[in-house]
């Protein structure tokens, strides 16, 4: 049964791999453009394994932002995983310690979505199934990162092939992923204005912390809704 569960997990993962692959390649290509070596880019995909935050890290590294702020921003972008692990704990309580460690290491947006879907449909979330899904997402992620980095290494001027437009548009897409959240417009507009002003009048690394802080303060000051349960969405 274990082998068939593993294979079933892998089957579930195939469409996920196909849709995630361009982002892995994008990360690899942008990574070498922003000063990482091919090995460093692949190591980052292997250890962080969270595409959006990896690209955020690169962007900030390219702006020579202070290291602590890079780590804090990566933590902020990955913050949603806290909600994921809280929400799926009930399905994996029967795993042992080492299995839980691997389970949470491999926790991504699609991994969470599929696990909850399976758990709520009444089928057992077995470790073999989870690892089948996790493996088919993890291994190709490293491979496409490596391919992207190898290709990116050949590019002398990223502007000629339009590579420089991809990162800002990608982040714009991520921002749009949050547009159903409470206070989205005031938060995004405040962060946008705050970051541009800081960029203009203070200087490059500070636009991130100043703009983000302004947006978060606005959210904290907005009228509190009666019931606002923490929601989990794809990002």
């Amino acid at each position: 049964m274990t082998g068939s569960d593993f294979r079933e997990g892998m089957r579930v993962g195939v469409p996920i791999v196909l849709s995630a692959a361009p982002f892995g390649a994008l990360f690899g290509a942008v990574a070498v453009q922003n000063g990482q070596t091919i090995f460093e880019a692949t190591l980052m995909s292997a250890t962080v394994f969270a595409g959006a935050s990896q690209l955020v890290g690169l962007e900030l590294f390219g702006h020579r932002v202070q290291p602590w702020l890079i780590i804090l921003s990566i933590f902020a972008v990955n913050f949603r995983h806290i909600l994921y692990s809280a929400a799926m704990t009930r399905f994996i309580l029967h795993f042992n310690g080492m299995q839980k460690f691997l389970t949470f290491f491999l926790l991504t947006d699609p991994q969470f979505a599929e696990t909850v879907k399976r758990g709520e449909s009444g089928r057992a979330v077995t470790f073999a199934w989870y690892m089948g899904l996790g493996t088919i997402i993890y291994v190709p992620w490293l491979v496409v990162t490596l391919i992207g980095a190898l290709l990116g290494n050949l590019i002398t001027d990223p502007k000629v092939i339009g590579l420089d437009v991809l990162l800002p548009v990608y982040f714009l897409g991520l921002v749009f992923g949050f547009r159903k959240r409470d206070n989205f417009l005031p938060v995004a507009l405040t962060a946008a204005i705050g970051s541009i002003l800081a960029y203009r009048y203070i200087g490059s690394p500070w636009h991130v912390s100043v703009g983000a802080l302004a947006g978060v303060i606005v959210a904290a000051l907005m009228p509190v809704k009666a019931s606002a349960p923490a929601t989990v969405e794809e990002a």
Binding site: F79, L167, F178, N183, V187, I196, G215, A219
Partner: peptide, 19 residues
């Protein structure tokens, strides 16, 4: 909770707007 909820959109917006 509202502040934490706003963190990702606020951080990501600062990577878009100055660009």
């Amino acid at each position: 909770d509202a502040a934490l909820n706003a963190v990702p959109a606020a951080v990501l917006t600062t990577l878009v707007a100055p660009n």
